[in-house]
């Protein structure tokens, strides 16, 4: 076949068996390359000719251990499959919210191939995992030619399918602060069909604080903006004022709904998303602070 033939969809295929190799290949191929982990979001785009990478760098040969504990953090290597997250006793014990959310990701086939690093990197604003990682106040460890750095989840998700990872970097680990016995969490979502991407989802972590009666709340909305949305202190203000009671929860839920400008799509209007935000924020908050 002549070089001029626009036979572009047949990409070069490269495998990486360690992160260093992946980073080297990425530098070599530049913008035309795509990293593939589970491939559950990327391959449909290639099949539908919506993405035509010049090269595919396959991360699957990278061997990773399961989740492990490291100084108060639950460390989940990026290539950990959703299935392994679900099966992990450490996740069940220290991060039940993640276990619940991962159980709602796709279906058994997606969970067998899909990886936590892939979900975080893909940064779908309706995805369960970005939402939970942000609510947990986790960190994303990325590695590039100049070494390793850790990005707080708060700064990681920028906009649709875009993260703070530089072009020459790859996500290698997700680190979540381990929840204590007194901590609460809440996760709720509405989907049009079971296990589909959420129309709206809300993840809440409530960390008890030794010095204060009111827990530290992190409330994240999914499906209502270009990225998972962490609610600011101004929105959570009723909690500070009223403490963890139903009135405060109602007010926060109302504030949350008022604060967003969601878009309409094939599954729901902006208005419906706003209403769901109020309901699900209330329900998740109530669950997190033990008033559910």
């Amino acid at each position: 076949m002549s070089a001029a033939a626009p036979n572009s969809s047949a990409f070069e295929y490269q495998t990486a068996d360690c992160w260093e190799e992946a980073i080297k290949l990425r530098a070599l191929w530049g913008e035309g390359a795509k990293l593939i982990a589970g491939g559950q979001s990327l391959v449909p785009m290639i099949n539908l000719r919506l993405a035509m990478p010049a090269a595919l760098i396959d991360l699957n040969p990278i061997v990773s251990s399961g989740p492990w504990l490291d100084q108060g953090e639950l460390v989940i290597p990026a290539m950990t499959r959703h299935r392994a997250v679900l099966d992990s006793p450490l996740v069940a014990t220290h991060f039940p919210m993640l276990a619940k959310a991962v159980g709602l990701v796709g279906n058994v086939r997606v969970r067998n191939r899909g990886t936590i690093g892939g979900s975080v990197s893909h940064a779908d604003p309706t995805g369960e995992i970005p939402c939970v990682v942000l609510a947990a106040g986790g960190r994303i460890v990325v590695q590039g030619p100049s070494g390793m750095r850790s990005v707080p989840a708060d700064d990681f998700f920028l906009t649709y399918l875009t993260t703070a990872t530089d072009l020459d970097e790859v996500v290698t680990e997700i680190r979540l602060p381990v929840a204590g016995d007194q901590d609460g969490w809440g996760f709720d979502e509405v989907t049009r069909r079971f296990s589909d991407f959420a129309t709206v989802e809300v993840a809440v972590s409530a960390r008890s604080r030794a010095s204060e009666e009111i827990p530290e709340l992190r409330v994240v909305l999914g499906g209502v903006a270009d990225r998972p949305l962490l609610l600011g202190e101004d929105i959570l203000e009723p909690f500070r004022r009223l403490g963890a009671d139903p009135q405060a929860i109602d007010e926060v839920a109302q504030n949350a709904a008022n604060s967003i400008s969601p878009e309409s799509d094939v599954h729901a209007s902006a208005d419906y998303r706003r209403r769901l935000t109020q309901v699900l924020t209330r329900r998740s908050l109530a669950q997190a602070v033990g008033l559910g």
Binding site: Y13, I36, G39, Q40, V43, P44, N47, L56, D58, N60, R83, V108, R109, V110, N112, R113
Partner: peptide, 12 residues
């Protein structure tokens, strides 16, 4: 383990 054959390339 069940997977999607349509979302896996043969080379993989």
């Amino acid at each position: 383990e069940p997977i999607n054959a349509c979302l896996t390339f043969a080379v993989q």
